[in-house]
C-alpha cells in the first residue's frame, strides 16, 4: 500500500505564519505598534501639547498664541482671587458629594448584601445598576426641569412651606451630583460587604461584642478600602464635570473656567488651570491608595 504524500508548496499565508513564528519580537511589535502608537503619539502627545501651551504667550487682544516662554497664565491664576475661590468650591463640592454618597449609599449596600433575600438582592443590584446606562445628559436635563421655577420640586415641597433651591444655587448641584454618582459608591461597598465572611462577624459576637461594636471594629475597617475605591469615582467625576454646574447651578467650577477660556481662545490660561485637577487627582489617588482602594477596585 502506498501513502500519497502531499507535495504542493505551502500557501503564502502559511509561509508568512511560519516565518513570523520564528520571530516573537516582531510579533510583539506588530501587536503593540498600533495601540501604543495611538496612545503615545496621540494621547500623551496631546497632554504634552497642553502642558506646553500653559507656558506660551497669548496676545491679550487678538488671542493669538505665540510659542514664547511665559508664566503669564500661572501668574494670573495665582494673583486673581476668583480662580482660588473656584478651585476651593470645586474641591469642596467633590468632597461633599463623596461624603453624601457614602452616607446614602452605605445603608442601601448593607441592606442588599446582608439582609435582602438572594432574589431581592439580584433585583436591587439591577435596579441600582440600570440608571448608569441611562443617558447622563437626560438625567441632568430632567433635574433641570424638576428644579426649575414652578417645577416638580416646588410642587413637592409647597405643602410643607418650602421650595426648590432653584437653578442658581449650589445646593441644586449637590443634589444632582449625588444623584448622578451614587451607583458608583453603592456597587463597590456592596461587593466589599459581600466578601466579609459571616464567620468573622460570628467570632466577634462570640467574643462578646454587641452589634454596634462589631460594626465599628470589624465591618467598618474591612469595608474602608471599598469606600475609598468608590470615592475615587464620586470625587473624580465631580472634579471634572462642568456640565452640571453650568446647567443646574449657573456657577463656575474648574472645568467651566477651562472650557470657557479654551473656546474664547485663551488656551494658555485654560491649559495652566487644567494642571490643577490633574494634581488634585494625583494627590487624592495617593491618599486613597494607602487606604487600600486599588485592591478593592
Amino acid at each position: 500500500m502506498t501513502v500519497a504524500i502531499e507535495t504542493t508548496a505551502p500557501s503564502r499565508g502559511r509561509r508568512l505564519a511560519t516565518w513570523l513564528h520564528a520571530r516573537p519580537r516582531l510579533q510583539l511589535a506588530l501587536l503593540l505598534g498600533l495601540p501604543l502608537g495611538f496612545f503615545v503619539v496621540f494621547y500623551l502627545g496631546s497632554l504634552i501639547v497642553l502642558f506646553l501651551n500653559a507656558f506660551w504667550e497669548a496676545d491679550p487682544f487678538s488671542g493669538k498664541i505665540t510659542p514664547a516662554f511665559s508664566l503669564d497664565a500661572f501668574v494670573t491664576l495665582v494673583t486673581v482671587d476668583v480662580y482660588r475661590v473656584i478651585a476651593l468650591r470645586t474641591v469642596g463640592m467633590a468632597l461633599l458629594v463623596t461624603l453624601t454618597c457614602i452616607v446614602i449609599g452605605f445603608p442601601v449596600a448593607y441592606y442588599m448584601a446582608r439582609i435582602a433575600a438572594p432574589r431581592t438582592r439580584r433585583l436591587l443590584l439591577v435596579a441600582i445598576l440600570m440608571p448608569l446606562w441611562a443617558s447622563y445628559l437626560v438625567k441632568i436635563y430632567t433635574w433641570h426641569t424638576m428644579l426649575g421655577g414652578n417645577g416638580f420640586i416646588d410642587w413637592l415641597l409647597e405643602p410643607i412651606g418650602l421650595g426648590s433651591p432653584g437653578l442658581t444655587s449650589l445646593v441644586s448641584s449637590w443634589i444632582v451630583f449625588t444623584y448622578l454618582w451614587l451607583p458608583y459608591m453603592v456597587l463597590p461597598i456592596h461587593t466589599g460587604l459581600e466578601r466579609i465572611p459571616s464567620s468573622l462577624l460570628e467570632a466577634s459576637a462570640d467574643l462578646g461584642a454587641r452589634s454596634g461594636r462589631t460594626f465599628r471594629r470589624v465591618v467598618i475597617p474591612l469595608i474602608l478600602p471599598s469606600i475609598a475605591a468608590g470615592s475615587i469615582f464620586t470625587f473624580s467625576l465631580t472634579l471634572g464635570d462642568y456640565i452640571t454646574p453650568d446647567l443646574i447651578s449657573n456657577t463656575l467650577f474648574i472645568g467651566n473656567v477651562i472650557y470657557i477660556n479654551s473656546s474664547l481662545g485663551n488656551l494658555p490660561l485654560a491649559a495652566a488651570y487644567s494642571m490643577l485637577p490633574v494634581l488634585i487627582m494625583g494627590g487624592y489617588l495617593f491618599i486613597v491608595r494607602r487606604l487600600g482602594a486599588f485592591e478593592a477596585l
Binding site: Y43, G45, S46, L47, V49, L50, N53, S236, L239, G240, D241, Y242, I254, G255, I258, Y259, S262, L267, A270, A271, S274, P277, V278, M281
Partner: peptide, 13 residues
C-alpha cells in the same frame, strides 16, 4: 484623568 483634561488636551492639539 478628569474628562475636562482629556477634552482640553485634544482640543489644544
Amino acid at each position: 484623568l478628569p474628562g475636562v483634561v482629556t477634552g482640553i488636551a485634544l482640543s489644544a492639539t
